[in-house]
């Protein structure tokens, strides 16, 4: 699984960016905030987004072998 993800890592960059940003910028940072009771629990409000990001990540992973190698999603002439 991991080697397949690593080979196609570019496909996961948007999800990885958002997860990391959410984790560091919101979760870890909220642990440092004092005198704001409930600011960590406020993170529950972002569950819908995290769910959608997870669904998109799983969908991307499932489509890796066929779609990304042969579907022509990428316009080769345009790249570069």
């Amino acid at each position: 699984m991991w080697s397949k993800i690593w080979k196609n890592r570019v496909e996961f960059y948007p999800y990885a960016s958002i997860y990391l940003f959410w984790f560091l910028g919101s979760f870890v940072s909220s642990l440092r905030v004092q005198n704001r009771p409930g600011i960590v629990a406020l993170g529950l409000i972002t569950i819908p987004s995290i769910l959608l990001i997870t669904i998109a990540t799983i969908k991307t992973y499932r489509k890796l072998p066929g779609e990304l190698r042969h579907s022509g999603v990428c316009d080769a002439d345009d790249v570069g």
């Binding site: 910028g25 919101s26 909220s30 600011i39 406020l42 409000i45 972002t46």
Partner: peptide, 14 residues
Amino acid sequence: NIDLWLDPVATSPE
């Protein structure tokens, strides 16, 4: 939705 948590944290006194 992501900003609903991010903004209160980023603007906190810390």
